[in-house]
C-alpha cells in the first residue's frame, strides 16, 4: 500500500506486520551518534534540532555523495543499536522507524503504547534504495559525517511492516511459517 508522511494514529492503525508499503514524503535520517546527541539534548531539557512529531526516522548512514548525485548508497543499518533511544523518541511523538533487524521488547511495547510502527528496508540493497531518494539535506550534527541528522524527500520508498501497534511481528511470523524440524 501507499503511505505518505507525516504519519497519524489513523495511518498507523491501518498497518499490519507483513504489509508491503511504499512511503512518499519527508523522512529523517539518524543512526547511533545522532540518536545519542538527540537523547542527550532531551535529557538536558533542550529541544531537538527537528520536530519529530508524526515523523519517521530512517536508521542509515549513507556512502559519500558523488558530484551530481542526490545521495550515495543508502540502505538500512541494524536497528537494535537504536533500541536504547527509540522509546524516548516515541514518547515525544516519533511515529515510525525504518531499519533492519530485531527490536528489543521495550521498543515493541513503546510501539503499541504510542501508536508507532517499525518498518524494515532491505539491508544491502543500498544502491537500489538510493534511487527512491529525491532530495537530501543535512539538518544537524554535520560534524558526524555519515552519521549526521538528515532530511530526505522520498518517493515510493519500499519497506515492509515488521512491528505494528497490535503486537504483530513479521520476523516471528515468517520464521514460524518456514521453520522445519
Amino acid at each position: 500500500m501507499k503511505l505518505t508522511t507525516p504519519l497519524t494514529d489513523a495511518s498507523v492503525e491501518k498497518l499490519h506486520a507483513g504489509d508491503t508499503v511504499e512511503i512518499t514524503g519527508t523522512i529523517y535520517v539518524a543512526r547511533d551518534a545522532a540518536h545519542k546527541q538527540m537523547v542527550d539534548a532531551l535529557d538536558r531539557g533542550e529541544k531537538l534540532p527537528v520536530d519529530l512529531t508524526g515523523q519517521i526516522v530512517y536508521y542509515m548512514g549513507p556512502s559519500p555523495t558523488k558530484p551530481g548525485q542526490v545521495i550515495g548508497s543508502a540502505g538500512p543499518t541494524t536497528s537494535g543499536r537504536m533500541d536504547a533511544y527509540a522509546p524516548r523518541l516515541m514518547e515525544i511523538g516519533l511515529k515510525g522507524m525504518i531499519g533492519k533487524g530485531l527490536r528489543a521488547a521495550p521498543v515493541k511495547d513503546a510501539i503499541k503504547k504510542h501508536k508507532a510502527v517499525y518498518f524494515a528496508a532491505t539491508g544491502g540493497a543500498a544502491a537500489l534504495i538510493s534511487q527512491r531518494i529525491k532530495k537530501a539535506q543535512v539538518m544537524a550534527y554535520e560534524d558526524l559525517g555519515a552519521e549526521a541528522l538528515q532530511k530526505l524527500e522520498v518517493e515510493d520508498f519500499p519497506v515492509i511492516v515488521v512491528n505494528d501497534i497490535f503486537g504483530g511481528d513479521a520476523y516471528e511470523d515468517g520464521k514460524k511459517k518456514y521453520a522445519k524440524k
Binding site: S73, A125, A126
Partner: peptide
Amino acid sequence: QLLKNVEIAKQGTFPLCQ
C-alpha cells in the same frame, strides 16, 4: 531486490552497500 542492486552497483556509481 538484491539481484537488481547488483546490476545498479556494477555500473560503478553506487556501492553495493552504504
